[in-house]
Design a protein around this nucleic acid. Sequence first.
DNA 1: TCCTTTTATGTAACCGGTTACATTTGACGG
DNA 2: CCGTCAAATGTAACCGGTTACATAAAAGGA
Lengths: 332, 332
Amino acid sequence: MTNIRKVAELAGVSVATVSRTLKTPDIVSPATRDKVLVAVEQAGYRPNLTAVQFRSQRTRNLVVLVPIIANTFFARVIGGIQEAAQRRGYGILLCNTLGDERTERAYAGLVSTRQADGLIQLRAYDPFTTSRGKARPPMVNACEVLDEAPCPTVKLDNRAAARAVTEHLLALGHRRIGMIKGPRNSPLTRDRLLGFQDALAAAGLMPDESLWCPGDFTPPSGHRAAGELLSRADPPTAIFCENDEMAMGAMRRIKEAGLRVPEDISVAGFDDIAFASFCDPPLTTIAQPAEDFGREAVALLLDIIDDRVDAADEHRIMPFELVIRESTGPAA
Amino acid sequence: MTNIRKVAELAGVSVATVSRTLKTPDIVSPATRDKVLVAVEQAGYRPNLTAVQFRSQRTRNLVVLVPIIANTFFARVIGGIQEAAQRRGYGILLCNTLGDERTERAYAGLVSTRQADGLIQLRAYDPFTTSRGKARPPMVNACEVLDEAPCPTVKLDNRAAARAVTEHLLALGHRRIGMIKGPRNSPLTRDRLLGFQDALAAAGLMPDESLWCPGDFTPPSGHRAAGELLSRADPPTAIFCENDEMAMGAMRRIKEAGLRVPEDISVAGFDDIAFASFCDPPLTTIAQPAEDFGREAVALLLDIIDDRVDAADEHRIMPFELVIRESTGPAA
DNA sequence: TCCTTTTATGTAACCGGTTACATTTGACGG
DNA sequence: CCGTCAAATGTAACCGGTTACATAAAAGGA
């Protein structure tokens, strides 16, 4: 293996000089610098990064915990994280946790054991809970955020966004609005439900919990939930789905029942995934700046890692936009 | 920092004994073992992984180069990679390369510099090309594979799959079949095109290149390409798209033109993404075992890393399945 | 009982960089 | 020409594990 000592020998200088030439060239005389660079080239020398990491106690890696990477929205967030991290010289260690807390804690351990400098969690769970007393490793919680997060957060005002969607449906004359929810226990689901209720209350309507169906953010769950809503004696005239995947499942089910969207039933989603504008009919939904969630999370995390401590208690709210397409129309 | 020496002191043994207790407990006497474990617990000791990696020259990390993580199919492949890697104690360093060769080479450097033990490339490009003479770092090429890959590969028989789709369309009576291709220079696109031509030739039809439109695997490109095909004097009666995303874009465009799928035009895709069975109409497509591509790639890579060299020239062909849904029907 | 073998533990070198501190070299002023 | 100081370079300790080798203790055999 060509290591720094080989290069030093080849260049006829000490290892310290080689190290300095590569890290702080300005404090090395030009003549020596050239000699060393030639030797580096000649030996095909590449510094052993594990040695650098070990010595400097900095890995330039970030752990990212994502609940389901196959989810279009998360895939975009990860894209943003990766781009921002790479731009600043960091790599990302990705873990598709599937919501399993054991797995999340295991990966969080990579930070405790120095294999990564910080962690981005995209789910409402603190993988460092059990770490007693010790200083918390650098962490940022984004997308689905803990209520009392012990770290900076990046989120959407889900409540306001859900309210905006609901108000749009109300303005179209809908009064019986079904809701296809995300997984229970999720702050995200809770907030969207609150926003939904806010809008109903503001319009003087009583909430009807029998119109709320659980789902799990996948198309099949939306399909199933829509089936339940349609089989009622008094089906809703509009359905608000907590994400676009479920909305697409719901639209399919509605068509299978021989009904039309939006003439018979309006459907709204959340996220504005790439397919939202290409499904039939194009979906009314909430657009989120997915990549920006990732970029912002990286920026905050590096603020903590680099001890720009003023950032330690930052909570960013990202903007949303109600995108009205053709899946919502006047109540029948 | 609590390191192994602190623990040794606390337990009243040598550092070697602590190391052995944690790595090879069976060669340590039960009494000593207990003493050490108590000390480990008491000190809250976690071994510094960078030190372990440095010393053992093994990082238990794999680099994964993915062209576009936001692509549903790749997201599934990554899910499979992650699962298989995690099961065997490996982490993955993910890079969303966007097809940029500079970026790919930079990440490949993580292997050369010992920050990862191997690399999985999901695109037809060898990021180690410039490494002169040296032994090639462990690598596996999956999904879109180099023709003369210098490493094991995992791929689909794209040609046979495309042929199967085309034969299905021919059997329905279609004679003018449009094709929406993927990016040029992609072996994947070339092979699917070959399979398409194989089927036409077998049916005694002359290929008509004017019916081939370029795309880039995104819904908007499928939308655009379908627009071109529809604006012809003699539009095709069926369109074969090289992936489902483009097929969804194409179906949207067809409906915008006031035509029906499949009554007026049949559409077929490739990949069988989650939305394929939920779009309108559900899409006829080729199902690929996406997660298995990832799992298989990991298995092969670890075979190389662990010097089970017999695997060094393995080329796995994964199975496909033609899934016939409602987007294809008899020619008008 | 003494010697051999096995088992358990300790000592210290080692991995490949980084960097504090020591030393050398050269420039410059008096 | 000598002394002072800054710049350039060298020496070697250090990071925290792992492990070859040495040593000590215990078990077994004659």
